[in-house]
Amino acid sequence: MLQDVADVLCAEPEEIDPDENLLDQGLDSIRLMSLVSRWRTEGAQIAFVDLAERPTLREWAELLAPAS
């Protein structure tokens, strides 16, 4: 997930703070939709609005973590 986000932001993974708002780092709706599409293709059950309302890597990791 970190690498995917870094790729769409044209950044290195270590430059991305897991607690920083990704919208403030340049993530726009088109890039967010590309991430949603990619992760759905890989089997994630996630919606655009879920990620948009919680725009940090830490929150996304919680949303995308398999239920135990």
Rank of each mutant, 00 (worst) to 15 (best):
residue 11 A to C: 13
residue 24 D to T: 11
residue 33 M to S: 13
residue 39 W to R: 01
residue 45 Q to A: 12
residue 31 R to Y: 01
residue 33 M to V: 15
residue 21 N to D: 15
residue 66 P to F: 07
residue 59 E to I: 01
residue 66 P to I: 10
residue 63 L to C: 02
residue 32 L to M: 15
residue 22 L to C: 05
residue 62 E to R: 14
residue 58 R to T: 10
residue 15 E to A: 14
residue 46 I to P: 01
residue 4 D to N: 10
residue 11 A to H: 05
residue 24 D to I: 04
residue 2 L to P: 01
residue 19 D to M: 07
residue 27 L to E: 11
residue 13 P to I: 12
residue 15 E to T: 08
residue 18 P to D: 12
residue 8 V to H: 05
residue 45 Q to D: 12
residue 46 I to H: 00
residue 63 L to A: 04
residue 3 Q to M: 12
residue 61 A to E: 13
residue 58 R to S: 09
residue 49 V to P: 01
residue 39 W to Y: 03
residue 18 P to Q: 06
residue 7 D to W: 04
residue 26 G to D: 07
residue 62 E to H: 09
residue 3 Q to V: 15
residue 55 P to D: 08
residue 15 E to D: 14
residue 14 E to C: 07
residue 14 E to L: 08
residue 23 L to S: 01
residue 63 L to Q: 10
residue 63 L to W: 06
residue 40 R to G: 00
residue 41 T to E: 15
residue 15 E to I: 00
residue 22 L to P: 01
residue 14 E to G: 04
residue 37 S to G: 13
residue 65 A to C: 09
residue 62 E to Q: 10
residue 23 L to G: 02
residue 48 F to W: 10
residue 35 L to D: 00
residue 25 Q to C: 10
residue 23 L to D: 02
residue 11 A to E: 11
residue 26 G to H: 03
residue 41 T to S: 13
residue 14 E to M: 11
residue 12 E to G: 03
residue 29 S to M: 09
residue 39 W to S: 00
residue 3 Q to W: 11
residue 29 S to W: 04
residue 57 L to I: 13
residue 51 L to K: 06
residue 43 G to D: 04
residue 24 D to G: 05
residue 5 V to G: 02
residue 49 V to G: 05
residue 57 L to E: 03
residue 26 G to P: 07
residue 57 L to V: 09
residue 52 A to V: 12
residue 48 F to N: 11
residue 9 L to I: 11
residue 3 Q to I: 14
residue 23 L to I: 15
residue 60 W to H: 05
residue 58 R to K: 14
residue 16 I to M: 04
residue 66 P to G: 04
residue 63 L to M: 11
residue 18 P to W: 01
residue 1 M to G: 08
residue 65 A to M: 08
residue 7 D to S: 11
